[in-house]
Amino acid sequence: MNVELITRGDLEQLKQELIEEIRRSNPHPRKQGNEPKVYLKSYEVRKLLGISAGTLQNLRVNGTLPFKKIGGLMYYRYEDIQNLMEGDR
């Protein structure tokens, strides 16, 4: 049986390669000027909507505001937030 050992350095290198690949593949990098970002973190959504963390959690739980959880952080599409504010949902 062929056994290969993976070191901490190997994992760090893989991590850096994955991060770079994600950055290269992101079709909408952080926009310039006054244009909003495509995805917002929870604290940005709370600030934008003027709501508490509990209210934001309720919006997630009842499906009013879609989100993606990546690495322990929750991200929200700016377009979904606009639709929520305009009453399209």
Rank of each mutant, 00 (worst) to 15 (best):
F67G: 00
V61R: 13
V38N: 01
E21A: 13
I51P: 07
Y39G: 00
L40N: 04
Y78K: 01
L18M: 13
I70W: 10
M74F: 09
R24Y: 00
G63P: 02
S42Y: 00
G9D: 09
M85C: 11
V3P: 00
N83H: 06
Y76N: 02
Y75C: 02
K41F: 08
S42K: 01
D80G: 00
L84F: 15
P66F: 02
L40V: 05
I19Q: 08
Q13L: 12
A53T: 04
P66W: 02
N83S: 07
L5W: 11
M1P: 01
K31C: 06
G54D: 05
P66A: 06
S25H: 08
N34I: 09
P29N: 05
R89W: 05
Q16K: 09
M85L: 14
G54Q: 14
I70N: 11
E12K: 11
T7R: 09
E12A: 13
E4C: 06
G87T: 11
N2K: 02
V45P: 05
M1Y: 00
M74G: 08
S25Y: 04
R60A: 02
E79V: 05
L73M: 10
L14K: 15
L59Y: 15
G54V: 04
K69R: 11
P36A: 03
R24I: 01
P66C: 03
T55R: 15
Y39S: 01
Y78F: 15
L56F: 05
I22A: 14
R24D: 03
T64W: 01
G33K: 13
D88K: 15
Y43Q: 11
L73H: 12
N62S: 12
G50Y: 11
R77W: 05
Q13F: 04
Q13K: 08
G87E: 10
Y76H: 07
N2H: 01
L73V: 08
L48P: 07
L40F: 12
D88W: 09
Q32W: 13
F67L: 03
N34K: 11
P27R: 08
R24W: 00
E35A: 13
M74I: 09
K15L: 13
S42D: 03
K37S: 12
I6R: 12
K15C: 11
T55L: 13
L11W: 04
M1G: 09
L56P: 03
I6L: 13
E35Y: 09
E12Y: 06
I22Y: 11
L14Q: 15
K15R: 15
G54P: 01
N62Q: 14
G63K: 09
L5Q: 08
K31L: 10
P27A: 10
H28S: 03
N62F: 12
L18I: 12
P29Q: 04
I19Y: 06
E20W: 03
R60I: 04
L65S: 05
K68N: 08
M74W: 10
M1T: 04
Y43H: 14
K15W: 11
Y43G: 00
I51E: 07
Y75L: 12
K69T: 13
Q16D: 10
E4W: 08
P36D: 03
